[in-house]
Design a protein around this nucleic acid. Structure first.
Lengths: 234, 234
DNA sequence: ATATGTGAAAAGTTTCACAGCC
DNA sequence: GGCTGTGAAACTTTTCACATAT
C-alpha cells in the first residue's frame, strides 16, 4: 500500500439489484479505485501518443500489475472490452471518467496559501482532470488580497459565502496541523462533501457525509525510507 | 483504503535466520508501514501535549482503526508494550523511528523547481522528520542561480556531482511527466536509492536497487471524487 | 489465434478472542 | 481490573485457469 494511506475498507454497498443502465457500482475496494485513476492516466497518455486500442496485458506491464487484475478491476464496473481485441482507448477513457466522476466539473477551494497551498493552486494537473479552483483562502491578513494566478487570496471569513455562491464540492486543506480540524468542521457545515487533506493530522470526521482523503508528505518519505532500507531486490 | 498508491506488495524478505539483536523485519505489508508512520505522527503529537503513555485502543480510535490492528502492526517489529499498562510514548517513538529509518538523517535532493518543487523544498515537515535537503535542481537556465531559502537552484548538469559529494540517498521528483523517466535513470546511475515521484507517470524501474513511491495529486483528487459520489454513510 | 470476463483457488489482511502478564 | 501479544477464524484481494467471444 501505497496504499497505502489510512486503509479504509470496502464500500460494502451491496445494495442488491442493479438498476437499469446506470453502472451502479458493486463493492469496490479503495485499491481498485486508485488503480482506475492510474488506468485513466495511462489511457490519456496512450491517446496523446496516437494509440486507439490497448490490451489488459499491456496496461498491466506499464503499471507493474498482473493482467488479470486489470481485467478484474474494470469488470467491477461493466464490460468494456472486446474478446480477442482488447479495449478501445477513447471509450474506456470515457467510461473511467464517468466512474470516477470526472466527466463533469468539480468546484474546489484551496484553504491555506502557504508554500504548499500556492503551489497546489498553480498545479496544472487539477484543471486537466476537471477540477476547477473556485477560490483560495488564508487567515493571514498579509496574504489576503494578494493575487495568485487568476485568483485573489480571500479571507477565511468569506469561506462559507464562497462555498455557497460558487457551489463548491471539494476542498483542499493545506493549513497547519493545529487549524486543520477547525477548518474541516467549517467546511463540512458549509456543505463541502469531500476534503483532500495535506495537514499532518487525522481530521476527525464528525459523523455525517464528509469524505476525507489524506496525503501526508512526511509519511510518504518515511514509506520510501523504509522501502529503501528493506530493499526488495536482492 | 484510501488507499493506495500503486500497491506495492509484500516484502517477502523471509531471509531465513534473524540475526542477533537487529530487529530484522518479518514480512511486513505496505499498509502496515504506512500505519507505522501514522502511529509515529500521533506519538509525536501526544508527546508535545505532555502524554507519556498510550494504549492501542486509544491510538486506534485516533486513527479510525481497530485496536487489534495497532497491536498486530507493532508486533511485526518487536514487543514494545507492557501488559496491563500500554506503550511508553518516548520509547515507542524511538522504536518506530528506528524501524522507518528516520533515527538517522537522510540526504535528499529536489529535482524540479517549479511550483511544486519550490513548495516542497520549503516544507517544514521534511526537516522535522530527519530529511535534509541537500540541493535543488532545475533545467531552466532562468531559474538556475535563484536563491530559495538556504539553497541556490543548481543546473541539472550538476546532479551527479552533488549526489556524490553530498552523499545523497533520496530524491524528490517534481519535474514534468515527459522528463521524469530520464531524470530517474540519471538518479539511479548516480547512486540514489529511492525516489518520491510527484510526476504523473509510472517511472520505469529498470531493474536493480531503485525504490519508487508515487504521489499523484490528480489521482488523489479522483479518489476523493469517487468516494464522494459513492458515499459510504447513509 | 488472441484476449476478455469470471468462477474458483491461493494468498494476504484484518478481526476475534483469549492466554498471559502487569 | 486492564492491556498486550498472538493463534485461529473471518474476510478481502489477487492470481490462476479456462470458457467464451471475435
Amino acid at each position: 500500500m501505497a496504499l497505502e494511506q489510512p486503509t479504509g475498507k470496502n464500500d460494502g454497498q451491496g445494495s442488491g439489484r442493479r438498476n437499469q443502465n446506470v453502472p451502479t457500482p458493486p463493492p469496490v475496494s479503495a485499491a481498485t479505485v486508485t488503480r482506475m485513476a492510474l488506468y485513466l492516466r495511462e489511457l490519456q497518455q496512450l491517446h496523446r501518443s496516437g494509440q486507439v486500442r490497448i490490451q489488459s496485458s499491456v496496461m498491466a506491464k506499464r503499471l507493474g500489475l498482473n493482467d488479470s487484475q486489470v481485467r478484474r478491476d474494470l469488470s467491477c464496473f461493466g464490460q468494456f472490452g472486446q474478446r480477442g481485441i482488447g479495449y478501445s482507448i477513447p471509450s474506456l477513457t470515457k467510461a473511467i471518467q464517468a466512474i470516477l466522476g470526472t466527466d463533469r466539473s468539480w468546484n474546489v477551494v484551496m484553504i491555506g496559501a502557504g508554500n504548499l497551498g500556492r503551489a497546489l493552486a498553480g498545479y496544472r494537473g487539477f484543471n486537466q482532470q476537471n477540477f476547477r479552483l473556485a477560490g483560495i483562502f488564508d487567515s493571514d491578513p498579509e496574504k489576503v488580497g494578494t493575487v495568485l494566478g487568476a485568483l485573489t487570496i480571500r479571507s477565511l471569513q468569506d469561506l462559507e459565502s464562497v462555498v455557497e455562491s460558487e457551489k463548491v464540492d471539494l476542498a483542499i486543506l493545506a493549513v497547519p496541523a493545529n487549524s486543520a480540524t477547525l477548518v474541516a468542521q467549517r467546511l463540512e457545515v458549509a456543505g463541502v462533501t469531500g476534503i483532500l487533506n495535506f495537514a499532518p493530522v487525522t481530521v476527525r470526521t464528525p459523523g455525517s457525509g464528509l469524505t476525507v482523503v489524506d496525503v501526508d508528505l512526511a509519511v510518504e518519505l518515511q514509506r520510501l525510507a523504509f522501502a529503501v532500507i528493506n530493499q526488495k531486490n536482492s
